[in-house]
Amino acid sequence: MSAPERIPARRVSAGAMSAELLAEGELTVRGRIREASNAALYCTVSHQGREAACIYKPVAGERPLWDFPDGTLAQREVAAYAVSEATGWGLVPPTVLRDGPYGEGMCQLWIEVTPESELLALVDAEEPEPGWKAIGFAEVGEGRTALLVHADDERLRRMSVLDAVINNADRKGGHLLPAAEGRLYGIDHGVTFNAENKLRTLLWGWAGEPLTGEAVDVLKGLKESLVESGTLAATLTALITAAELDAVRARVDALLSSAKHPEPSGEWPSIPWPPV
Score class of each variant (00 low, 15 high):
171 R>D: 11
164 A>E: 00
271 I>S: 12
263 E>L: 03
161 V>H: 07
3 A>D: 00
113 V>A: 13
274 P>M: 02
113 V>M: 12
13 S>H: 09
271 I>C: 09
223 K>Q: 15
219 L>I: 05
33 I>D: 03
23 A>V: 02
9 A>M: 01
128 P>F: 00
140 V>G: 08
214 E>G: 01
76 R>C: 04
213 G>H: 05
257 S>G: 01
137 F>R: 15
55 I>W: 05
105 G>I: 12
138 A>S: 10
12 V>T: 05
77 E>A: 11
227 V>Q: 06
15 G>H: 12
228 E>V: 06
232 L>C: 06
134 A>E: 12
139 E>L: 03
86 A>N: 14
222 L>N: 10
265 S>C: 01
219 L>P: 04
118 E>T: 02
188 D>N: 06
16 A>M: 04
239 L>S: 03
78 V>L: 06
241 T>R: 15
259 A>P: 05
133 K>P: 03
51 E>Y: 00
179 A>Q: 13
38 N>K: 09
232 L>S: 07
158 R>D: 15
142 E>M: 12
55 I>R: 00
131 G>I: 04
111 I>T: 13
45 V>Y: 10
27 L>H: 04
137 F>S: 03
58 P>R: 10
239 L>H: 00
215 A>L: 00
189 H>F: 14
235 T>G: 01
1 M>I: 07
45 V>I: 14
258 S>M: 00
262 P>H: 10
65 L>P: 04
118 E>F: 10
204 W>P: 13
194 N>S: 15
29 V>L: 09
73 L>A: 12
205 G>H: 11
28 T>Q: 08
159 M>G: 05
65 L>Y: 05
10 R>C: 08
86 A>C: 14
240 I>C: 05
111 I>G: 09
105 G>F: 13
75 Q>S: 07
270 S>P: 03
71 G>D: 14
257 S>F: 11
155 R>K: 06
138 A>E: 13
93 P>L: 07
271 I>P: 07
263 E>I: 11
187 I>E: 06
80 A>V: 03
18 S>T: 10
167 N>R: 03
178 P>S: 13
134 A>Y: 11
132 W>C: 04
71 G>L: 15
25 G>M: 04
186 G>W: 15
4 P>I: 05
53 A>P: 03
274 P>L: 01
207 A>T: 11
205 G>T: 14
204 W>I: 13
252 V>T: 05
26 E>N: 08
123 V>F: 09
16 A>N: 02
48 Q>E: 15
179 A>P: 13
123 V>M: 10
253 D>A: 06
94 P>N: 12
228 E>M: 08
148 L>A: 15
79 A>I: 15
117 S>Q: 01
75 Q>L: 02
104 E>R: 12
223 K>R: 10
88 G>P: 06
